[in-house]
């Protein structure tokens, strides 16, 4: 596998069978995503965007085709190996933030570090640094419900980056946010990409969000379109 390529998909297919029906979520996708890329994925609802992120994160397995992520063939890993690999290499950001409601911002961000060998003071220090990167160094002890949506999403980004993963996957990270909060989140992602060298794949419905990315591609009914995001979407 070429160095310089973070994610490599070859004839990647994903089908779901649901009550006799076969749903083709991803249809023969061949695509390389370079290291340090800020890649945006667009497409109508049900086109397979989330499915693609799930495969890259190793939460789900492809039906056929090959998928290399950071030089590892994740299709061959056991669930245990995958869990470990994921905690080290992938940061995941959701549309609905998904913070643990009973834990403070600081504790939420520290949580993934529980899986490392770091001592508690080091964990807390790194979690604080991550929160400072997203501009929430002064909200350490706030519970999620004491934060605005935009702040919650920034905590979620801090949680995704605290383990220093090479890849950050973001599934409609601005879907629930107002324009101002969305802009903050997008500029944080841009900073992570530009200054910290993270490879970012972001799914979005919002063409304005897509403009923050370096490359945009369009999925339709599980197929990757060759063209750039059509301008009619604006």
């Amino acid at each position: 596998m070429n160095s310089g390529i973070a994610i490599s998909m070859r004839n990647l297919c994903k089908e779901y069978t649901r009550e006799e029906f076969k749903v083709v979520a991803l249809d023969d996708i061949t695509l390389d995503i370079a290291e340090g890329e800020f890649f945006c994925l667009m497409g109508p609802s049900g086109s397979g965007k989330s499915t693609l992120l799930h495969l890259v994160a190793g939460i789900d397995r492809p039906t056929s085709g090959s998928l290399g992520v950071l030089g590892a063939d994740i299709a061959d890993m056991t669930d245990r190996e995958l869990a470990r690999w994921r905690s080290e290499n992938i940061g995941y950001v959701f549309q609905t933030f998904n913070l643990i409601p009973v834990l403070t911002a600081w504790e939420n961000v520290e949580l993934p570090l529980q899986l490392t060998h770091l001592k508690r003071p080091d964990r807390l220090e790194r979690a604080r640094t991550a929160l400072e990167i997203v501009g929430l160094g002064d909200r350490l002890d706030h519970l999620p419900k004491q934060l605005s949506g935009g702040q919650e999403q920034r905590v979620a980004i801090a949680r995704a980056l605290v383990t220093d993963p090479a890849i950050i996957l973001a599934d409609e990270p601005t879907g629930e946010l107002d324009a101002a909060s969305a802009n903050e989140v997008l500029s944080i992602l841009t900073t992570l990409n530009r200054d910290h060298g993270k490879t970012i794949i972001m799914v979005t419905h919002d063409p304005r969000a897509a403009r923050f990315a370096r490359t945009s591609r369009y999925l339709d009914k599980g197929r990757m379109m060759e063209m750039q995001t059509p301008s009619v979407m604006d």
Partner: peptide
């Protein structure tokens, strides 16, 4: 959902 997130963060079954 919370449990799923924990698993996604890498916590084992």
């Amino acid at each position: 959902r919370e449990i799923a997130v924990l698993r996604l963060l890498g916590f084992s079954r």
